[in-house]
Amino acid sequence: MIARARLPRDRERDLQKATSELLLALADDDFVLGFADSEWTGIAPHLEEDVAMSSMAQDELGHAAAYYGLLADLSAGDPDRIAYDRPADAFRHCRLVDHGRGDWARTMARRWLYDSANAVRLEVLAGSANRPLADLVVKVRREETYHLLHGEAWLERLARHDGEPRRRLAEALELVGPDAPSVLAPLPSEALLVDAGIQPLPGAELLTRWSARIEPVLGRLGLDLPAAAPAALDPRTARSGHGAAFTWLWTEFSSVRALDPRATW
């Protein structure tokens, strides 16, 4: 059977749907990570780090709010409704940020894995054919540069302290490492996004670039990153089927709004 050629209007609609999928992935990643990291506010290991961590959590939430804003523009919706009023299983954050915050080593390992992968993704999206997205990404990258420096400094500090710090870091990498590639795993509609230049390179290429970036750092510190979990690379599972940690987080962050979702808060 020969597939019927898609009409231009169908393509337009499919492309908009694919763009929404990309924006939702970007927004939910930063939203969920920002929430998890904000749990450190007030209880970080020391006061200076507390202030730094709160700043980064705010940056992530600010980025999420901006991505939700672009999504709202596409769908004539409201950023808060998109962010808060979805059921837990409609969130499209990646498996890496689905883990609970854990201890400081896990938070830092995850931050470094996420920030290094996100840097590769944003570098490519800065050349997106979607102008509002490309313009936003330029701004986001300025802040993300500092997050990566912070994460790398902690990775190094923990890795170079034999005993408990290094042991905890290794355990954290063991736990969250297999899910790290989920940040860059292909989206279900990737072919369309790449074809239209909205995401100029496919996920497979992003993953290669990311490995080339992190391998020298891991090698220098003598750290192992476990092989990718198959679910973290599969477009059908990399951003769905969330676990108990996210269910808890979702219940918490939607609890006040749930009192009256139509009220102004």
């Binding site: 929430f35 904000s38 749990e39 506010t41 007030g42 006061l47 507390d50 202030v51 709160s54 700043s55 959590a57 705010q58 939430l61 600010g62 999420a64 709010a65 939700y68 950023p79 808060d80 962010a83 808060y84 987080l249 918490e252 962050f253 609890s255 006040v256 709004r257 808060w265």
Partner: peptide
Amino acid sequence: WILRAPTLRRKLALTAKIQDEVG
């Protein structure tokens, strides 16, 4: 209440405020 802040704006304002207090 950081986790429960009911809008994006409230959440950002609350984390920023608490960050100030820690500072």
